[in-house]
Computed example of a mutant assay.
Amino acid sequence: MFDTSGVLAQESPPADIIVLGKIVSACGLQGRMRVHPFADDPLSWSRLTHWWVGREEDALNLWRQTKLLSCQLRNGLLLAKLACVADRTAAEAISGALVGVPRAALPPTATDEYYWADLIGLSVRNTRDQSLGRILGLIETPANTVLRVGDGESGERLLPFVAAIVLDVDISGRWVRVDWEKDW
């Protein structure tokens, strides 16, 4: 899948990889790829010298570090060129892979800002102190980000991640308080 000349071997990749996006398709003949961003300010990723590439279905969670050669934002997607992807065939083969970086490479978040990876798994309780489940994931929509909350019994709820709904987030306490009824 990868041209090993551009990949830096890692026997034990960092456990704290923050997923930034997903490679969705090849772009042109030179090995550039379209990357769907999962976070704000994706153009700032172009200042990173290396990205890590891995696959969701990889049970061993093997991430490989590779040099970022170029990155630009176009129509909401990143067009990126990685040292491990030499041509269109290699770009097509890597389609579907995730890109990320170790947490240490990212800037600290401001007050009331969170990395999505920090929110996944947090317990969600409403203002009546009823459990709504845990955050399973997030969805980016044109209007706002949406929390996918599930409790394993009643399926999944979609809650807008906006100040009127999400009243408090406590990363260290591993919980989120929302203004949302259990039967909605």
Rank of each mutant, 00 (worst) to 15 (best):
F2T: 05
G6R: 12
G6Q: 07
V7Q: 03
V7G: 08
S12T: 13
A15R: 10
D16Q: 04
I17Y: 01
I18M: 04
G21S: 08
I23N: 09
A26W: 11
C27T: 08
Q30V: 13
G31Y: 10
R32D: 15
R34Q: 13
P37W: 08
P37K: 06
A39K: 04
D41C: 05
D41K: 02
D41T: 10
L43K: 13
W51Q: 07
W51G: 01
W52E: 08
V53L: 15
E56G: 06
E57R: 09
D58E: 14
A59T: 14
L60C: 07
N61K: 14
L62W: 10
R64M: 10
R64K: 07
R64T: 13
Q65P: 07
K67C: 11
L69R: 12
R74I: 14
R74Y: 14
R74K: 14
N75K: 12
N75L: 10
G76L: 02
L79G: 03
A80M: 15
K81E: 09
K81V: 03
L82V: 09
A83Y: 05
C84S: 15
C84F: 11
C84M: 11
C84T: 10
C84P: 06
C84E: 02
V85C: 13
R88F: 06
T89R: 12
T89L: 13
A90H: 15
A91L: 06
E92S: 09
S95N: 05
S95R: 13
S95I: 01
G96N: 11
A97H: 15
A97R: 06
L98I: 07
G100S: 08
V101I: 04
V101L: 05
V101F: 00
P107Q: 06
P108G: 08
T111S: 09
D112S: 10
E113V: 06
Y115N: 00
D118G: 00
D118L: 00
G121R: 01
S123M: 06
R125N: 05
N126A: 07
T127Y: 04
T127V: 15
R128A: 15
R128L: 10
D129C: 12
S131P: 03
L132P: 05
L132I: 04
R134Q: 08
R134I: 10
L136H: 12
G137E: 08
I139R: 11
I139W: 01
T141P: 05
P142R: 04
N144V: 02
V146S: 02
V146A: 00
L147A: 03
L147P: 00
R148L: 15
R148E: 15
V149I: 06
V149A: 00
G150T: 09
G152D: 14
G152I: 12
E153M: 14
E153G: 00
S154P: 01
G155R: 02
G155Q: 06
G155T: 11
R157W: 04
R157Y: 02
R157T: 07
R157Q: 14
L159M: 13
P160T: 11
A164R: 14
A164F: 05
A164S: 15
L167P: 03
D168V: 04
V169D: 00
D170N: 14
I171A: 04
I171G: 01
I171S: 04
S172Q: 11
G173Y: 05
W175F: 15
W175G: 01
W175K: 08
V178Q: 02
E181D: 13
K182H: 07
